[in-house]
Structures are given as structure tokens and as C-alpha cells.
Design a protein around this nucleic acid. Sequence first.
RNA 1: UGCCCGGUAGCUCAGUGGCAGAGCAGGUGACUGUUAAUCACUUGGUCGCUGGUUCGAUCCCAGCCCGGGCAGCCA
Length: 465
Amino acid sequence: MQRTLVKDALNSTGPIDTILLQGWVRTRRDAKAFSFIELNDGSCLKGMQVIVDATLPDYAAVNRANTGASVSVRGKLVESKGGGQKWEVIAETFAVLGEADTDYPLQKKGHTMEFLREIAHLRPRSNLFGAVFRVRSRLAYAVHQFFQERNFHYVHTPIVTASDAEGAGDMFRVTTLDLANPPKTENGEIDNAEDFFGKKTFLTVSGQLEAEIFACALSNVYTFGPTFRAENSHTSRHASEFWMIEPEVAFCDLQGDMDLAEDFVKYLIRDIREQCAGDLEFFSKFVDKDLLTRLDFVLEKPFVRCSYTEAVEILEQSGKTWEHPVAWGDNLQSEHERYLTEEHFKCPVTVYNYPRAIKAFYMRQTDGCAPGRETVAAMDLLVPGIGEIIGGSQREERLDKLKAGMALHHLDEKNYWWYLDLRRYGSVPHAGFGLGFERMLMFVTGVANIRDVIPFARTPGTAEF
RNA sequence: UGCCCGGUAGCUCAGUGGCAGAGCAGGUGACUGUUAAUCACUUGGUCGCUGGUUCGAUCCCAGCCCGGGCAGCCA
């Protein structure tokens, strides 16, 4: 007999004579003549109430159906006599497939997120994490849907790379050399030519440069994959391994880039709002009371756009005392970004045209800047509660300017020969951005810590699962 | 990496320089179309580790380990 998912059974339009449900026991309440069992199979937040009558030949098994046990139930789907649920299942056969010892750590009552992180192998069975990871799955689907609907092509950029990309952060080394006894050159230095790839290799920090290659061939592309940063960051919004979405668009300028970013973020929110309504309701009840109003607000209002120079003026005139001083030429600090999006504009803000000196070498120099006020066509999208969720730019398509940018950042042209070639052969204006997938997921669910939106989070010192 | 907070029962936490506490979970029994059921009884401790101060340390001090927050780095 075909198994029915709890989700489908709960959505049934009428009673069903025989139905097979399989899942895990959330709670059991025994009465004299029968037992109530709440069965959850992860297909949705809610479970199905199962009633096992004491006269049933299988009733002895109920005793072993503790919280956490896996069970298989065949029976009738009928309208519930009790309040609290529309449908329930009257069991005809009942079997425990896998018992759960009484030390099953997931209790029916309050756990801290910190404790649940330590049982990452069991936490998906909790209401909260079940919901988080269903939303994560749907959000990934929506990412592809957004780009595929717009004729973007999905490019798989390498995970192991020899280029340190943009200096986006410290990198994890990839090697097969014997660390205890590495081959040495005549100078006594480690001989990287002997390594697996014949040179030093790392885990990628960004697929952007490779995505640019494909944008300069397929026009509209995006990457969506894992990225790695070996930064010793201890914050609620940084992970050593995270997923990033990086669209790259040929024949596109900064304006188009900002438009795309705004459309993208709104599309994702709208999709989750519609497709994961039950899970979002749960988050708004137990995680973040303002979640739904904030998401709806973001959908309705156009994002504010504000140049870096204007932002600096706003911060200077705010009357606030800053822990980090505000000055044109310095990076905006977290407290500044938070003020802009949470207090001043009270909505998502795209800040653009940042000082050239503090941004990456590949960003396009703005023409006609006042001396000492040189900027590049960079943009950051800031959202309330999280801060930076997107960072992007129009790329420098002019060979001489790109070389100047590399010189400014003390980069060796030899390492970027293929990147420079893109400007030699049919160069076009192009732009793109990176969206932190987990940060978007935090925004959409209201979950405050990035470790709780990744199935198995990697942070400094932690890789248990 | 810097600053700050925490570590006591399986979980969430209280507490004290002098016999280690509660709620929940677990166990036993009762009761009930129950809803994180309810009621009664009950098991359960290396008070993070190491050292120091003290007649006596879970409590005070130092070092270390672990968890968390904020900042920097960024997505």
C-alpha cells in the first residue's frame, strides 16, 4: 500500500477508508481505552493525530511508541471528534519500526538553540528546524526559478581554485602533501609543484571571476554553490562554509544590477510567503513576532537608494555619537549600516558608489569624480536586522583601468591573465552581485543565528557533524 | 583576533564558604476525547577541568577548556 504524507492527509477534502502513514512519534497520551499519538513525518509543520484503540490486536506496540520512535499506521482518516484538528486517523494496524530509548534528547518542552546545535543529527525533527529546512529547500528552488524564468544560465564554478579571487578573505588550503614531511625545494621551502595540482590550491571564496567568463559568452548567468572563508569570525552572521548566489550580467550597468538585486530579493520573499505560509506563521509566533509585517512591508515598498557620499552626510548629521567615527573614505561600520536601514530609512537600503580605495580591484571606476573623491560602481544592499545581505558592482571592462585597479591593490597581473583577456577580446559592460543564501534565509525566517539555518554549520573550531 | 557574559540533574534554571534545589523529562500508579493533558509518588549530581587560599570550596582567586554575545573581516 502506498504511503500518504501527513501534509496531504491533513489537506484531504473528505474521509478516506484506508490510509498508510509513517513517521515519528512527537507525543503520546494514553487513556484507559485508547491512546493518542501525534505523528509527524516532516512533510509539514503539523502532525496527524492517531488514535489506537486498546482492543486492537496491535495495541501492545503502543507501549513502545515513545517520543521519537518511528511508527507505521494503517487506518481510517475521519473527522476528529476533538477540537484542535480537522482530521485524525483511527488505527487498524499499528507497528513500531524503530524504538526510541527514553533518553531521546528532544523533549516536548523548551530547548535552547545552543543545545539543539549540539544534536544537529536530531534537531531537524523539531518543529523549528523542520520548518527552517523546509524553507531552505524552497528558497533554493525559488533562486533557480527566478533566474531560469529570466533566461539566466546556471554555471558551476570550481570549488577548488588556484586563484585567490579578489582577496575576499582568508582561504582554506587544499593539499595532498604530507604535512609532516612535505617535499622541499633546494631553498628548503615547501615545493608546491609537487602538490596534487602542481601549484598551491584553495577552496573558493567566490565564483565571481569565473562567472564573468561565462557572462561574456552566455550573457546572463548565475552561480549557486558553497563558498569558504577561513576568517576567525565569531558572530551570528558568519560561517566558514556558506552558500552564495552570484548572478553576472553582460551589457548591464550598476543601475541594472541594483534593479536585479531588488527584484530578486522581493521575488524570494514573495515566493516563501506564498509557498511556506504555515512555516512562516510558526516563525512569527515563536521566533520573531514582527516577521510577517516586516516581510510584507519589504514587498510593498521600493528599496531606498543612497550614494555612499549621501550616506556619510546622513550619518554625520544624525546627531548620534558613533563608536567608529564617520569620515568620507572609511568603510561604513555595522553600526552605521544598521542606523541607515533600521532607524533612518526604516527599510532596505542600497548604498552605491563607494570610495575606490576601500573596494575590490575589479569594480568599475566612476567617471568624472572630484579629485580625492574617486569612487567605484559598487553597491551593498542592507536590510533591517541583518545588515549587508548583498554586495555587488559593475565590473571594470576597460583594460587600462582594470590594470590600474590591480596596481592600486598590489596584484600581480600574471595571476589574472585570463581575467584580463576578457577585456582584450570583446569586452562589454557587465555587472553582478553576491547574495548570502543563509543571510537571506535568516531574513525570511527571522532566525537570528546563521548556525541555525545551515544543516551542519562550519564555524571556527566546529565541524562535529 | 579584541572586549563582554555564561558553564550546577537528560533539558531549562535557582542557590550557598559548612548534608545539593525547583520545574520539565524519565520511572510507578491513578484519571481523562486528550492537545507541551492532569494528579500523586519517585529515580537521578565529578556543581566544566586543573591548581591555589581555607579547618572546610560548587561558592573566593589563578590558569585552561567549552558555549554564547558584540566588534573587526564579509555574504
